[in-house]
Structure formats: C-alpha cells, structure tokens
Design a protein around this nucleic acid. Structure first.
Lengths: 340, 340
DNA sequence: GGTTAGAGTCGAACCGGTTCGCAACGGATG
DNA sequence: CATCCGTTGCGAACCGGTTCGACTCTAACC
C-alpha cells in the first residue's frame, strides 16, 4: 500500500507538504496541490487509519453497545442499531458493534484501548453496570434509555410516562371504563427495564384520575407463552373493552389470539400498542400505536455524541436528558366500547 | 492514559523490556516480569489500539458488511449478524459494522485504510458488486451466500438445492401430489438473490422426477401484501395439499391466513418452511421447517476467516466453498394429504 | 582456563501519519 | 535600498507501540 511518503515523493515534495496539501490546514500553492492530488490518484493512496488515529488521537469510530438479553424481543433492537449506524455514517463515523454478553468488560476494553471516540449505549437499565465505567472513560457517551443517574452522559428516551397517560386518555375519551395493560415479563423489570413501570405507573395514575378500572398484567416476551397470557387475561376480565400493549411480542401475538376468540378490533375490543411504525409494517399489525421512534432516538443520540466528540459543545455544558414526545398513530383499532 | 513508557519507568526497565515482559516473546526474568505486571495494574495500563495496529499491522477487527435492502425481511438478517459478532469476539476480534447502502464504497474505505484484518460479507448476490473490490483487497474475505464466481474468497451457504429436494421429497413421501412453493419477490431474484431460484429449480426438478405437480409463486416480502399473495395462491389452486415456504414474511403471515380460511395444518394442509429455529420460536411458527442455521453459517465464516488472517492456512491453500446440509425440523405440520 | 551457549536487558529503528518551528522567497512599503 | 510581511515549503519531532541487533553476565563444557 502507498504511504504518504510515496505520494510526497511522486509529487516531488516533502511528507509534511503532502499532508498539508491534503488536509488544507496550511496554504499550499495550486500547482503543488494539483501534483499531490494527481499522485494520490495515481498510487491509489488511502491514509492508514491506525497511523492517523495515533497521530490525531481520533479514530472516527463510535462504539455501539447492544445487549441481546434472553427475554427480550430481538427484532425491536435492530431498528435502534440501524438508526445509530446510519446516522454515524452520515457524520463520517464508523460503528464498532459490541454485542458481548458481558457489556462492562467490553466497554472497558474499547474505551481504554482508544478504539473509539465515543460510545452509544442501547437498552439502558435503571441501574446499568456499564454506566460507572462509561463515566470514568475519557470518551463521551450517549444513552438510549433512562437510568436512575444521568450524570456525565447525554440521555435520550421516549417519554414513557406521557405514553402511558396518552394511551389511557385516548380510550377514556372514547368511553371505555375497564381496560387492561399488558407489560413486559417480570424479568425485564427486575433487570432494570425502567421504561416498563414508567409507562405502567403513569397509566395507573391516569386511570385513577379518570375513574376507570385498569388491570395490569405481565406478558411473556416469547411465543407461544405470551399468547396464553393474553387469553388468560381476556378470560379473567370479561368486562375489559380496551387493551394497552407495551410488549412487542404480545402485539405480534395478538392478531392470532383475537382471531381464535372470534374478536375483531375495534368492534369487540379497542387496542393501542407501543411500537414503531416500521415494526407495525413488518408484522402487519393493524393496531393504533404509540410510535416508539427507535431510529429517531438513535439519530438524536449520535448527533449529540458527535457534537461532544468534535468539541462543538463546551466541555462544561450540562448534559442533556431529552424525551421524545410520544405520538399516537391511528390505525383504526379503537372506537367506542361495545355496549354490554 | 498510561503508555508503555510509563509502565517501563515505574518498573525501572526499558520500554522494550516492558513490551517483551507483556508479550512473552522473549525470555524475561521472573522478577522483572512481576514488577512490570505490578506497574500495569498500578497505572491501569491498556495498550493503545492505534499504535499497536500501526506497529503490527493487525487491528484485531473484522469488518461485517450487512445490507438492509428495501424488500427484505430485516429480522432474519439480525441472526447472521449475531452469529458473526459472537464468534468473532470469542476469537479475540471486534466487529466493525457497515450497514451502508453503498456497500462498495464502504468496503473500499475500510480495507484501504486498514481498519480491519478481514471481511465478512452477508447477503451475497449472484453477481455481487462488492466482490471485485474484496478480491483486490489485501485482507481475506469470507462470504455467507453463494455468488457466481467464488474465486479468492471462502464461501459458506446452506445447500439450497438439497433443501428444495428435501421439501418436495418429504411431502411426496407422505402422499402429496399437488403442492405449491412460495418464493421471494421478483426483486430479490433480479437483484441476484441466487438462493431463491437455487431452491426453486431443485424443487421443480424433484417434483418432475417424482411426477407431482408443483406450482411456484413469488410472495411479497412485506405484510400485508404477502397475505394477499397466499390467499390468491390458495384460491387459484384448490387442489393443493402441501405448501413450501421459502420466504420469511410469508411464513410469519401464514398462521393468520390459514386461520381466516378455517384451515389447520396438517389436517387440511401440510406446510414446510425454510427458516431458523430461532425465527420459529420468536414468531411461534408451528410449521416443520428446513433449518437455515444463520448462526452456524456466521460462525463458520468467521472461523475460516480468522484462520486465514492468522496464517494458519497456507496462502496458496485453495479457498473453500462449503454447503451446510439442510435438516428438516419436524414440528408436526405435515401429514398425509386430505383425501379429496 | 578459555570458549561457548543461552538468558536477560537495552537502545534504536520503524510503522505512517500530523504538526510545530523555521527559513527562503518575493513583493510591497517607507 | 533596507525592512517587513505573507506565502510556501521543509525538516524534525511526536503519537505509542513492536522488534531487531548488540551487549553483558553467568553457567556449562571441553
């Protein structure tokens, strides 16, 4: 492979001149610049990433830590990853993908060895073990998901409280008085998936304020268990006229369950989910849903991260905690309750 | 951050001695080794990846090129990615994820700049534009998917011909005489997704040899279109007693379609798919299927790639083209045809 | 007792970029 | 004509590792 020395020689200038001609950081005569560029083309020169990283202490790589946990619905994760990856590329960065089960060790490895200029953490838990390590790293970090302690990092998440209220209010306004919320399995909550109870608590509050009955159940994250959970729920509470689904697997399983029970939405049952539009299209889910906007969150996280990396933001500028306002995408699965 | 110079100074030795003490590439007295290791611990030293890459011309990073194409079922891709990522990590490599729409430019960028020691290409097309670039790169490459020209790279894929025969034979043996095969959309084939017609052609041949009727149709890769495709198929060929599904989206849509038509498998219709067990569990698909083994293919590709990177294989050792023998996972969705 | 082998350490060079300080040059200015 | 300044290019140092050759010292061998 050609080095910048080869380019310099071919252009008849020194290495430093060649470097300046390419970076434009000092004035270079038009003639020399042309000769250097010609040499680059001739030799097919591409800078060596390692050497450049060593000299500039910038790798132009962002670390992406994605956890694929046992009881989580993997396809949902993919969309966050793509949002991050595509945005990073637009801004000139590559992605180092870390899917290690042991996220803490992996995080320490890639930050200490300076393989990356910054870190994006996905699927952040209430008390995430990776967070202390990220704070002690010299690279900035951006999170998708809300931890208990947001200090030292930029945080982006859906406003799950508002989502919970929105779901309840929507059905209340249509006249529903007894509804049920299907959440994630206990495991997810115990592990620290705070978003589950953030939505749930807000929904419970809103239901109380509106004076309507809200049953909450944990749904499995896997088929076919989650189908059984849904059936059990409908058996136990025959008075329920509305369903709130904060669980991708449950949403994916619902069409079959309803069909088997001979129910249709919104005639027999109103349904509101919480998942992305992309998800809805992939699985052809006909339910109105709160848009979870994974690509948008990934994009916001990377944008802010790159601002910090490139010093566009003062080092002492406070870190942001930004919530995306949930929006209800109407797919016609809600209506007035069936009059008993 | 501490450098190896700091470590050497703290241990009272030269930089080279510190380096040898850590790498073990030369004999070092037990005393010195202990002092160096102590200094490493004390200072929290981690080698700088860029510097090491520059010195050794090894980055310990593998480039993973995944294409997310418009009319493809994204969740299926995720499993290949995880197979590759996890295996790479086990072997000490990190993954540079490239999801660029423009795979050719991205590939050139990461190989020329020596960011990676090797490349894994997913979703390889019959005439893949990325291949010439990969061949001209100095790093070795491994493919998941079979191109027309396999020279210069190691290739791993499911034996789709055998899969096609297996599906047909299985139903033939049970007594079926009129079956239908649902493939991918035209786009996928035109773009070069060779595996679609590899399976299809073999199925057609096998059907002819067995003297049974085989209808082939292209199914959409998105909901709800693919549901319509399935319904149209069943309407057009009421005599069909068996269904072969080489299309993830179609498989995911089938339970609903069958339910709506009041059909059950295997009583009314025998069904054989082609997807991974993980996929079946995620979507609770109750159909017997040819295991597509994405994690296994990813694993094989990385294993061989690392062997080449590390020179465990002679440079002139011929490249391999290895097919995974398809296996039918029996989920009880096939049986003797309904006697008309 | 001299030679030799091997163990253990160091200094210096190298990987391929970037960047700082300096100097040569030419034109404008007083 | 001397001075000053901006433009343009060069040489050298540096980033943080690895590795080669040479040197010293000790133990073993003939």
């Amino acid at each position: 492979m050609a080095t910048i020395g080869d380019v310099a020689q071919a252009a008849g200038v020194s290495r430093s001149t060649a470097s300046y001609a390419l970076s434009g950081k000092r004035a270079i005569s038009a003639d020399v610049r042309r000769r250097v560029e010609e040499a680059v083309r001739q030799l097919g020169y591409t800078p060596n990433a390692g050497a450049r990283a060593l000299a500039t202490s910038q790798t132009m790589v962002i670390g992406l830590l994605a956890q694929f946990l046992e009881d989580e619905f993997a396809p949902a994760m993919l969309q966050y990853m793509l949002g991050v990856s595509n945005t990073a590329r637009e801004l000139g960065y590559d992605i180092l993908l870390v899917s290690d089960a042991d996220g803490t060790r992996a995080l320490r490895r890639i930050t200490d060895s300076r393989m990356v200029d910054g870190i994006v953490l996905l699927n952040v838990a209430e008390r995430d073990e990776r967070l202390p390590i990220l704070r002690s790293a010299t690279q900035p970090g951006a999170l998708v998901g809300l931890p208990a302690d947001c200090s030292g990092v930029d945080v982006f998440d859906l406003d799950f409280e508002e989502a919970g209220r929105l779901m309840v209010d929507h059905l209340h306004r249509l006249g529903h008085r007894e509804v049920a919320l299907v959440s994630q399995p206990e495991h997810v909550i115990e592990r620290g998936g705070a978003y589950v109870w953030r939505l749930q608590n807000a929904a419970v509050e809103a239901a109380k304020a509106r004076g309507i009955t809200l049953h909450t159940v944990a749904g499995s994250s896997h088929q076919p268990d989650v189908g059984h959970d849904l059936n059990a729920l409908l058996d136990a509470h025959p008075g329920v006229t509305g369903l709130l689904i904060n669980n991708e697997a449950a949403a994916a399983a619902l069409p079959t369950v309803l069909h088997e029970r001979g129910l249709t939405a919104p005639e027999d049952l109103s349904v509101v989910g919480r998942y992305s539009d992309e998800f809805a299209r992939t699985f052809s889910l006909p339910y109105s849903s709160i848009e979870s906007a994974p690509d948008r969150l990934g994009r916001m996280a990377v944008r802010q991260l790159v601002r910090r990396i490139e010093g566009d933001v003062a080092a002492d500028e406070p870190h942001v905690v930004r919530f995306v306002t949930p929006e209800l995408v109407d797919r016609g699965s809600t209506g007035a309750p069936r009059t008993a």
